[in-house]
Computed example of a mutant assay.
Amino acid sequence: MTYTEAVKHLEQARFSPIYLLTGEEPFFIQQILSRFREKVLEEASRDFNYDHFQGESLDPHQVLMTAKTFPLFSARRLVIIQNADLIKDERETLLSYLESPCDTTVLVFVAAKPDMRKKLFTALKKKGTAIHCAPLSEQALPGWIAQEGKRRGVSLSEEATWYLKERLGNDLFLIQQEIDKFSLHSSDKKEVSLEMVQQLIAGGRSHSIFELVRAVGEKNLKRSLTLLSSLLEEGEHPLFILTMLTRQWRLMATAREGIDAGKSETAVGKKVPMPPSLLPAFFKQLRNWKESEIRRAFDLSLAADSQLKGGRQSAPQVLEMLLLDLCRPHPTSQRTGYTLPFLESRS
């Protein structure tokens, strides 16, 4: 079952004696384990009936003895084995338990990427209940952020949600931490705006990376250089600035391809991962960018990335030259030999 299905399953309190918890999203893994402790164990007797083991140092006999111990002042005992894929010795002891598990114990094996060809995991999948916690896709992340905000009493605007996604990526622990901050600053229950999120996350910076991206998209050289200087002075990381600019060319390339194919802005906008309220400004910028210019911008950004990582020039110099090249008219903008990765199949 998925993470969402597992949450509903645990809410029903109809527990299986054996679980296999897998997946590469540590935040969801932690959330499921917290729910196991909350739902399986009674608070007053939790310390008496909860045991935790590590796979790399596991003594299977001790696990069996613990799992077969009757719970004290509670209906069930909870036993969790972390890093179960590192269990080495005496797997047969565990396999024998799987054939006849104790109905008053919930035994949870946790392994991010187990080798399902191994006998132990084959048996766990067959005898137990499998829960898989997959990472969120880029498309699903904004919805999760909004839902997580509501769960904590925080209403996030579309722009604020998008900013969190772009700024923090798929680090769900960090996103949750920031949402908790918003809950402390939005006691009046008003919607959390983009400006408020920028203020809290950027540490009071007077300008945001999105203002710079917008200025470059408008080919406004003077404002772009002013914003770049401000962001660098206020501690913004040069590679993050470059990453956000490069991302803009990817979005523009996707949109430009659709527009050039005769699709409407409404249809193309559904393929562009940004809040609908920001799409009009995005398409206004796009009208000033030909496909060849977008490809050139992407090439220039790749070159700037190499220069930043090479360390021969200072970051301000590299980024200033990049903005000069991007914003100044370039009469010989020709299609370069580089093909954007997501357009290769169509080129």
Score class of each variant (00 low, 15 high):
Trp289Gln: 07
Gln248Leu: 02
Trp249Cys: 11
Ser314Ile: 09
Lys290Trp: 07
Ser306Asn: 09
Leu239Ala: 12
Gly235His: 12
Ala267Pro: 01
Gly262Arg: 11
Arg250Cys: 01
Gly311Phe: 10
Ser306Val: 07
Arg295Pro: 01
Lys263Trp: 14
Gln307Met: 12
Leu242Thr: 01
Leu245His: 00
Ala303Pro: 00
Asp305Gly: 05
Glu233Ile: 04
Ser301Gln: 09
Leu278Trp: 11
Phe298Lys: 00
Glu265Gln: 15
Ile241Met: 11
Glu293Met: 12
Gly262Pro: 03
Leu232Trp: 05
Glu233Phe: 03
Phe240Lys: 14
Trp289His: 12
Gly262His: 10
Arg247His: 00
Ile241Gln: 11
Trp249Pro: 00
Phe283Asn: 04
Ala303Met: 06
Ser301Thr: 12
Phe240His: 13
Val272Lys: 04
Ala304His: 01
Arg287Val: 13
Pro273Met: 13
Ala304Phe: 04
Lys263Met: 15
Lys284Phe: 05
Lys263His: 14
Ala281Gln: 13
Gly258Phe: 11
Gln285Tyr: 06
Leu286Pro: 05
Lys284Pro: 00
Leu242Pro: 05
Pro275Thr: 10
Lys284Val: 06
Glu233His: 10
Ser264Glu: 06
Glu293Gly: 14
Leu279His: 08
Leu232Ser: 04
Arg287His: 14
Thr254Ser: 14
Thr254Trp: 09
Ala253Glu: 07
Glu234Lys: 01
Gly269Phe: 06
Glu265Cys: 07
Gln285Thr: 08
Ala267Tyr: 02
Leu278Cys: 13
Leu239Tyr: 05
Thr243Ala: 13
Asp260Pro: 00
Lys271Gln: 15
Ile294Gly: 02
Met274Pro: 07
Leu279Gly: 08
Ser314Val: 08
Gln313Cys: 04
Leu245Ala: 02
Val272Thr: 13
Met244Thr: 07
Ser306Thr: 11
Ala315His: 07
Lys284Trp: 05
Asn288Asp: 14
Ala303Gln: 12
Leu251Asp: 06
Leu245Ser: 01
Leu286Gln: 08
Gly269Gln: 05
Ser301Asn: 03
Arg296Phe: 00
Glu236Thr: 07
Arg296His: 06
Glu257Ser: 13
Ile259Leu: 14
Ile241Phe: 09
Ile259Ser: 11
Lys271Cys: 15
